[in-house]
């Protein structure tokens, strides 16, 4: 039978066979794990990017609020402290695969979100602050950033779902145990945490 197989592979069927094998291999998802990992990582950097953006807005916001409501010292310092704590959490490549580190990152950002929510709520009591152009611009930026964070987190959760599923289901599980042993499942934001963590900042 071997001879008949070789005969079948004669002539133009050789490149065709090679094409089919490579196509089949690609179809079997040999590329799926690295490419879905890359996608999830890209989504993660967008999450970090948006958290960074929020962090960058805070000093300006704190200064503006201070100008009108200096007596709200507790709330102001809690925001500054939470921001300092959030920036102190080191984020590196292992954060997304290490449950402990991920939890730490999530907790620090959640604390900052809560402190920020309190600051915004307190600002409601100061009509001069609320109507100042500077504050209006800042509040729209904070609002926009909170929304971007929500979108980035959702995109990340989806990308991680695809990646983790690829690692655990056939045929990905086969490649994960042969070619891609170093690929770890990624951590993701949980739904309950999401509800707790991103307080709806509403200005009216």
């Amino acid at each position: 039978m071997g001879g008949s197989f070789a005969a079948r592979l004669s002539g133009w069927r050789v490149p065709l066979f090679a094409m089919m094998v490579s196509l089949l291999l690609a179809g079997c998802g040999v590329n799926a794990i690295p490419s879905s990992e890359e996608h999830a990582k890209a989504m993660w950097s967008e999450v970090l990017n948006q958290y960074q953006r929020r962090s960058d807005l805070i000093p300006n916001l704190v200064e503006t609020v201070k100008g009108y409501a200096a007596q709200e010292r507790d709330v102001l310092t809690s925001v500054i402290e939470a921001r300092a704590k959030a920036t102190a959490v080191t984020v590196d490549a292992s954060t997304i695969t290490d449950p402990e580190k991920f939890k730490q990152f999530q907790a620090a950002q959640a604390e900052l979100g809560r402190a920020l929510g309190r600051l915004i709520a307190v600002s409601e009591a100061y009509p001069d602050l609320k109507s100042s152009q500077n504050f209006l611009a800042l509040q729209s930026q904070i609002e926009g950033t909170e929304n971007r964070i929500a979108v980035a987190r959702r995109d990340y959760i989806r990308a991680v779902q695809v990646y983790n599923t690829e690692l655990k289901t056939f045929p990905g599980v086969f490649w994960a145990s042969t070619f891609y042993r170093s690929y770890q499942p990624m951590e993701t934001f949980t739904i309950t945490d999401e509800q707790k963590q991103v307080p709806k900042v509403k200005f009216n």
Binding site: E143, G144, N147, R148, A150, A152
Partner: peptide
Amino acid sequence: SSGGGGASGN
């Protein structure tokens, strides 16, 4: 595509 930029109002 969009990443959530913009603003809302009511």
